[in-house]
């Protein structure tokens, strides 16, 4: 069991590092002041990946019954889709 915990620790540490890098990317895009549909889609994509990493690894839902994976990942996908739809609706 200890070996299993150690590899789980390593995986979470790598994910944490990637999540920090992704956050820095989002911040840098914001600081650059860039906007528009492509940038919005990119930022939503990054948020989707970050959320999925937290759901599957940090919340340990990778090992949960399928229903709970669908409910949480489904929530994330639906919210990002609604935000994207609203963004598209607001375009001139």
């Amino acid at each position: 069991m200890i070996r299993d915990i150690r590899s789980a620790d390593r995986r979470s540490t790598v994910l944490w590092g990637l999540l920090i890098v992704a956050t820095a990317f989002t911040w840098a895009v914001g600081e650059g002041g860039a906007g528009g549909p492509v940038i919005a889609a990119l930022l939503l994509g990054v948020a989707l990946l970050k959320g999925a990493a937290v759901i599957l690894d940090f919340m340990a839902l990778a090992r949960a019954p399928l229903l709970w994976k669908l409910l949480t990942l489904g929530w994330l996908a639906l919210v990002c889709a609604l935000i994207g739809l609203a963004y598209w609706k607001g375009m001139p």
């Binding site: 895009v29 930022l43 939503l44 959320g51 994330l76 935000i83």
Partner: peptide, 9 residues
């Protein structure tokens, strides 16, 4: 989700 939505997009 909140951070990119409110602060960046």
């Amino acid at each position: 989700v909140l951070f990119p939505l409110v602060y960046v997009i």
